[in-house]
């Protein structure tokens, strides 16, 4: 009896969680006439891929995808390297200013980033980085440094110090010991950090719409934002764009499920 109740409750919650995903997929597959018809159809009468085709022929969605991919890959790679280095020192050494530095990193995660939005625009304009993917990459790296450093520190602390000390006794330098012994053990954690960072960049909206308005530098969120500022939203294309932009993150998050609690505790503080 109690078991049955539990199954029902869990089932209902699963349904509530997944229904919006189902609905956006169904919407993206309906012909325009069917999207705006009553009564609502819960299954497309005629499945069509026209909205997906429209994305790539009318809107330059392929280019936006490429921009998003490039920015997210470079920024995530950069911030992961920075995290691997910084996290190591924070985990393995005690030095003056260590606590202050951690605090300075943590504080950035609690503050509303939006205070910096205007001045960042001015800075980007001074550096001639407006409307350029490089500018976005730099800002994204900065945005994610505290997160990646803190989460990597946590991963290092789980690797026994004895492991690298043994390697150092064998005559390896600290760097060699780190690269040969510690990093391989940490690879899954490093991959998880990279993926978290990638997804954050992939999804980022407000910085991107502040710095980017030229067609050839738009990322997916910027492009989708310009769809919604139009008076009438074309829900077919919107649904298709949503599906396309959410698929990669779904797959990536499924791959790092084990690390999600760590990501949340370090990233719970993400702003």
């Amino acid at each position: 009896m109690r078991r049955a109740l539990k199954v029902i409750v869990l089932g209902v919650w699963l349904l509530i969680t997944l229904f919006p995903l189902y609905w956006i997929i169904v919407t993206s597959l309906k012909p325009k006439a069917e999207i705006f018809t009553l009564p609502i159809k819960y299954w497309p009468g005629n499945v069509t891929f026209e909205h997906y085709a429209d994305l790539f022929s009318f809107a330059d969605f392929g280019a936006y995808l490429l921009n998003s991919l490039l920015v997210s890959l470079v920024a995530a790679a950069g911030v992961t390297v920075i995290g691997v280095l910084g996290g190591y020192t924070l985990a393995r050494f005690s030095f003056p200013g260590r606590g202050a530095l951690m605090l300075a990193f943590l504080v950035t995660q609690m503050l509303p980033l939006f205070i910096a939005l205007g001045p960042l625009y001015l800075l980007m304009s001074d550096l001639d980085l407006l409307n350029r993917l490089a500018g976005l990459m730099l800002v994204y790296v900065a945005m994610l440094v505290p997160f990646s450093t803190i989460i990597m520190r946590g991963f290092y602390e789980r690797v026994p110090v004895a492991l690298e000390e043994a390697a150092q006794v064998d005559g390896a330098s600290r760097i060699v010991a780190m690269v040969r012994v510690v990093i391989p053990v940490m690879l899954p954690g490093i991959a998880a950090t990279f993926i978290f960072a990638f997804v954050q960049c992939w999804n980022e909206l407000f910085l991107a719409i502040t710095f980017i308005d030229s067609e050839d530098a738009k990322t997916i969120p910027v492009a989708m934002n310009s769809f919604i500022t139009q008076y009438d939203i074309d829900w077919g294309s919107m649904a298709a764009a949503t599906v396309v932009s959410v698929l990669p993150t779904l797959v990536l998050f499924a791959a790092i499920r084990r690390y999600i609690v760590e990501g949340l505790t370090a990233g719970a503080v993400k702003g």
């Binding site: 995290g83 280095l85 924070l90 950035t108 440094v145 505290p146």
Partner: peptide, 17 residues
């Protein structure tokens, strides 16, 4: 090891903040 991260955070987070 810490320099790159600190530079980024100072330049693109603390300074604009």
């Amino acid at each position: 090891c810490l320099l790159p991260g600190v530079v980024f955070v100072v330049l693109f987070t603390y300074y604009p903040m």
